[in-house]
Write a protein that binds this DNA or RNA. Structure first.
Lengths: 183, 183
DNA sequence: AAATGCATGTAACGCGTTACATGATTTT
DNA sequence: AAAATCATGTAACGCGTTACATGCATTT
């Protein structure tokens, strides 16, 4: 077995999606936006080079596929070696993620903030939390009408979002009150 | 006034910290770890080049300072232009952050996961949530003994963390139960 | 005729990490 | 004598975004 190059989560997002069924680069982008948009993103500028790399590793194959309007279309499919790599990816424990939260950075340095700036950021933040929550409620409603082997996993992910968005909206509301009380 | 180059949050973490008081690169690193560690990080490999850039922009100055053991030491101080830049930074509304959460990616692709992998990741996640919560409880206790113009802001930030960590530990516990019920 | 959607890719760039290189002082 | 702490910086690299370049088919 060849030496494993260190892996990259983008490659596994791709691998996972085309493991479901063969897809084009364009499909993958759309799918990531629609289904993973609350917690993941991919740009074409990264996606296509990664597809190239996965092909070089023989984890996926490319073949011309039927047009769906517009230009020529390629469909990527996973190989048995690709399935193996996907399994291997799961078998490595997740490295802790180091988040960088610029809102909290601003709050920590809040004594240098001009009047109103933090409240403006908190209000915008709350709006995003509420919009996210509303969007996930929709997702949950449509999941409740679906069935299949994946639905349970997807419900778990959606509930992460609803938990997060509602807790943080509530936090931001408390923060607004504290800041207003400060003057 | 010269054209503003697009800015970078690392520069403002630095600017904010040396606005509190003059510090060395080493000080900044330590301070970020101790006070911002739950939601921010900086590496020397990024920090020193950014200090150089901030100097080139005349937002900070460098001067040799007293050793505190070991090698020669430089202290950076903010300039009036630097204070202005810091204020300007606050005045630009925060861009929404696009998080990438690999745990959720794994869960979404959970049907390809080998048995036990997701439960192992959730258990590790919960442990990190609980450790984070315990650490922030400490922070809150020490903040409750402090006073000053910053404490209110810092309490808000700490409460973000406690809210987040406890909500997500609870979420992960529910997720564990769901997955176990699935077999 | 114009806009939108489908579709593929590259180039340039900035961010940030890891590894490396160096070295004095203080503590164990 | 060794380890930890204080301290400064560069080099190489990978990740990911934005902007660019192209172009057909369908809808408005």
């Amino acid at each position: 077995m060849a030496a494993r190059k260190p892996v990259n989560p983008t490659e596994f997002a791709i691998l996972g999606l085309i493991a479901e069924e063969p897809r084009s680069g364009y499909d993958i982008k759309r799918e990531v936006e629609e289904r993973f948009g609350h917690f993941w993103s991919e740009s074409y500028g990264h996606l296509y080079p990664m597809l190239k790399r996965l092909r070089a590793r023989r984890w996926i194959t490319r073949r011309p596929a039927a047009r769906r309007g517009g230009r020529a279309r390629n469909e990527y499919a996973i190989t048995p070696a690709g399935r193996g790599a996907l399994t291997t990816w799961f078998s490595v424990p997740l490295a802790p993620q180091r988040p960088r939260n610029e809102l909290l950075l601003r709050l920590m340095l809040g004594r240098f903030a001009p009047s109103g700036a933090l409240l403006r950021d908190l209000a915008a933040y709350r709006e995003r939390m509420r919009a996210g929550l509303a969007s996930l409620r929709e997702v949950e409603r449509s999941l409740s009408r679906e069935s299949g082997p994946d639905v349970a996993h997807w419900v778990i992910v959606a509930s992460f979002g609803t938990t997060l968005y509602s807790s943080l909206d509530a936090w931001a509301e408390r923060a607004e009150r504290t800041l207003r009380a400060l003057g």
